[in-house]
Design a protein around this nucleic acid. Structure first.
Lengths: 342, 342
DNA sequence: TGTTAGCACTCTTTTAAATCGAGTGCTAAC
DNA sequence: GTTAGCACTCGATTTAAAAGAGTGCTAACA
């Protein structure tokens, strides 16, 4: 059996209709819904074919059909219009100057959730590839030093270093100078272990304290940025019966959003691909508890190559068209926005 | 009509029972439940009295009674045992060294939610009364300075200051010295406007840039710590039919927890009172959408007078006894914990 | 006078049965 | 290849009946 144009049209009509209503759709509906001018009987025949081919499913005898994951996949891959939507409200709100990146991200994700009515998330742009601008060690008291690391884009990182014996001002100055000359301009990735050993040698570090400090600084530099995730609209999950009927699953989902744990999984695949926007239908995503959801992610990029991800999570009968459109324009708008702000 | 001991016992029995089952409780149940050895008929008479007095409510004719807000209040105020519960698991988990205050708080709130099965929140200890340890201004590039502010307890705050013209090293050194001599040891509250003006004068700030910098630093110092709130267990709301049946309200509640917005309201009253643990029943709390909930908050205090709040939000038929016990021991345990960690 | 047994009454919940209705598959005719 | 028609299926809705929980009231009892 082969997918011909008519079958595709019918499949599309079924999915479109199901997206709207959430109810299984029957042959009569399609007969009227499309402009193919076919009777319900004919549609029935085609639907039987489509079912055999695995694109649609019958929840029980004498119910209409609903799309299978395969059906959604076909729809997303081949039939979605890639129209660029208006995002007037979105733009307007985002244009208002927001001081901090954090606030901006929170604003964006909130807006996205409100606009799409799905649970949404956004990650802060990763800065691990950013170059190091400068490092500063300062003395807090006899037992503590403060390390401040400034990266490109003026992203700042602090760490308090415990020291076992006091360090005098002169040593500190020397250390500062050395660290800056050696490390500034490098990306986090480039700073390797051998480099650190080199630094220690250069510092003539027979004294344990200096070695200690260098280790701590190295650790501070290479420490995993914990991926900051902002979420909004988890409560939208309750709006879709197919997700909220099983209240245990729904609770689990909501919890995932509240705690922001495990959401990285959603995003990780998204970075390396060449496609900017990805759609995961049903069990295509590997996060436990999200088998009944679809996930759409988009990567965005700010100046300086900082990349982050925006995503939305909703029921499989998601308005893919709208979501993809929204993410598309949002994605391209974010960079402009950030430039304006900074 | 007056509340005598027997009525109180019966009221207590009603409430206890209702807390467990969530169902209206009838006279026969109480007759067996208490050791008063009274027949259901007698209990019925007493219940009629209690209803007249406003402590219990009959949802509809021929249903049992449920406690009114007034009933809960009476229960909480007079009848709750203040036993100190075991928190073995809690202590054990918390004892595991956790590096950051943030992680600790997240751990605590998660544990609390798990233990009580209610939605939980915790605020980071407020540091506005902490003394300033030192300030450091550094040059990032020609347009940006970095302000690092270290407070007691090694709490660090950063701010990037935009400057309109470059500042040379010498000026920076001078500024650093001045800021530190003048400001260190003071609390955030003590640093007033007049002080800032004084600083500017002292800096001989005819040059606009210096004045600019001082302003920015002052702003950075006095900027409201945004109250960090950590939450967990919002999904527990779904476990209580009286909260989750109205899915709109439930969604609103969950959203409040996810966004962590408006939760401050819950907490604000808690700080100034003398009572460490407070119970708000039903509409006693002023957060919109939480009329059907009860809220229990406890303030905790870390070394150095840093205060924060722990709270739980649940249905009115909350296990007040357990919750208060848990919060009590948690509250007293937090300081020890923090000391060990730091 | 306080307590209790008993009973009629009320109202919700549960259960069962009946009916409805959307949708199908198949057949036969166009 | 398309369509009308029809018998059939099976979940959903409606309806009715029964069950159950609990009350208020009255009258009897200690």
């Amino acid at each position: 059996m082969e997918m011909d144009e008519r079958k595709a049209t019918i499949l599309q009509a079924i999915i479109r209709n199901y997206l709207e209503t959430g109810e299984p759709v029957g042959s009569r509906t399609i007969s009227k819904y499309t402009d193919l001018n076919l009777s319900s009987a004919t549609i029935r025949n085609e639907m039987a074919d489509l079912e055999e081919m695995g694109y649609i499913i019958q929840p029980h005898t004498s119910a209409g059909r609903i799309p299978s994951d395969k059906g959604y996949r076909f729809y997303v891959d081949t039939m979605m219009e890639a129209k660029d939507r208006e995002i007037s409200e979105m733009k307007k709100v985002l244009m208002e100057r927001q001081d901090k990146l954090e606030d901006m991200l929170k604003g964006v994700v909130k807006l996205l959730a409100k606009d799409t009515q799905y649970a949404s998330l956004i990650t802060a742009p990763s800065v691990s590839r950013n170059k190091l601008k400068f490092i500063q060690l300062s003395r807090i008291d006899d037992e503590h030093l403060l390390t401040v690391i400034v990266k490109e884009g003026n992203v700042i990182k602090n760490k308090v270093v415990d020291i076992t014996e006091p360090v005098n001002e002169e040593t500190l100055l020397k250390l500062n100078l050395m660290l800056n000359t050696q490390l500034s301009g490098m990306t986090m990735d480039e700073i390797s272990l051998s480099m650190i050993t080199g630094l220690k040698a250069q510092a003539g570090s027979h004294s344990g304290v200096i070695s200690e400090v260098i280790d701590a600084v190295a650790e501070a530099i290479s420490a995993e940025e914990d991926l900051k995730v902002y979420t909004s609209g988890a409560n939208n999950i309750l709006k879709y019966p197919e997700l909220s009927d099983n209240s245990e699953k729904a609770g689990h989902l909501i919890n995932t959003f509240e705690e922001r744990e495990g959401l990285e999984e959603l995003i990780i695949g998204g970075e390396d691909g060449d496609e900017a926007i990805k759609v995961y239908i049903g069990s295509e995503n590997k996060v436990s508890g999200m088998e009944d959801c679809s996930v759409v992610t988009a990567t965005y990029e700010l100046e300086g190559g900082m990349k982050g991800t925006i995503g939305i999570v909703g029921p499989k009968r998601m308005d893919y068209d709208k979501v993809v459109g929204t993410l598309k324009s949002l994605r391209s708008g974010l960079d402009d926005l950030y430039k304006k702000d900074n």
